[in-house]
């Protein structure tokens, strides 16, 4: 019995010790966290904001104003008739043109960014770039690019290149390069080394090694990632317009500024539809690519 009770005393001693440490840690953690949280809510004026007496009512009113005043009997009439679809989408040709411009921006930026990312990925893959300093520099640069939000970069580039799609394309291309460069280099490092050795053994140069040893292995994965990025870039291109970097975003901004909330909804639906179509197309291509990769 003395043995078993000694087990209990030993445990209780150990428990007190552990508990004291744990409680201290938990207490400190909780204190710090709640202090930060409190300050955060205070700083973000979450509770002190003057949001009117009836915030939900205001959102409701806002949403209500987004719903266009369509009339059933005049639905298919021309744009001068109040309540028709054409009246709601009163500037449709311009929006479609800007929408197409947005798509073009996304595609061009994805292509440019993918090419840039490809070059960068070879420079920072451990199995393809022997010089550590180069790998380090390229990696850090890509990381820095990924940290910078697109919209901030777009603001700077709009100042340099002027308002228009050029600034938007460069912004998206740079940020695409940042993310694809990292993903591509991860793919590169998974390349089967036996094939590379085989190439080296048969006396192939660096370029030939990449062309025949690496590219065939990684191409399907590359394309798949680039297509996913294309989907993201389309939403990105639509948003960039808000700061004047081309595309349909400028119209969204205008609609908000002139408090044409029904127009805002109209353009938003257009963008969502556009993204939806590109998503479907890109998914179809990706599925075919994956199927291709398996059958090989």
């Amino acid at each position: 019995m003395s043995e078993t009770s000694s087990a209990v005393t030993a445990f209780e001693a150990l428990r007190r010790q552990t508990l004291r440490r744990q409680r201290l840690q938990t207490l400190a953690g909780l204190l710090i966290f709640s202090a930060i949280l409190l300050i955060s809510f205070q700083r973000s004026q979450f509770f002190s904001s003057d949001i009117g007496d009836d915030p939900l009512g205001r959102i409701g009113e806002f949403l209500n104003r987004m719903i266009p005043d369509l009339k059933g009997e005049a639905l298919l009439a021309d744009s001068r008739t109040e309540g028709s679809l054409a009246w709601w989408y009163y500037d449709l040709p311009r929006w479609l043109r800007l929408g197409w411009q947005t798509v073009e921006m996304a595609i061009v930026a994805t292509v440019l960014g993918a090419v840039g990312g490809l070059l960068a990925s070879f420079l920072c893959a451990r199995n393809l770039m022997p010089i550590a300093a180069v790998r380090f520099t390229v990696r850090r640069t890509l990381e820095a690019i990924r940290t910078l939000p697109d919209l901030v970069l777009a603001l700077i580039l709009v100042a340099a290149f002027g308002a228009g799609p050029l600034a938007g394309v460069i912004t998206l291309a740079v940020s695409t390069m940042g993310s694809l460069g990292k993903l591509f280099s991860e793919i590169n490092e998974e390349v089967d080394p036996r094939q590379l050795e085989g190439m080296r053994a048969s006396g192939a140069g660096y370029a030939a090694m990449i062309r025949y040893g690496v590219v065939p292995q990684v191409l399907p994965n590359y394309t798949s990632y680039a297509l996913i990025r294309l989907e993201g870039n389309l939403a990105g291109a639509a948003a960039l317009g808000i700061v004047g970097a081309g595309g349909i975003g400028i119209e969204l901004q205008r609609a908000i500024t002139y408090t044409e909330f029904d127009t805002y909804l109209a353009i938003l639906l257009l963008i969502v539809g556009m993204i939806f179509l590109i998503d479907i197309a890109s998914e179809a291509i990706r599925h075919r690519l994956i199927g291709l990769g398996e059958s090989r």
């Binding site: 078993t4 087990a7 209990v8 445990f11």
Partner: peptide, 13 residues
């Protein structure tokens, strides 16, 4: 504590 002691005794057994 009584529960803990019982648990320890069972574990010790």
């Amino acid at each position: 504590a009584a529960d803990r002691a019982r648990a320890i005794l069972e574990l010790d057994a």
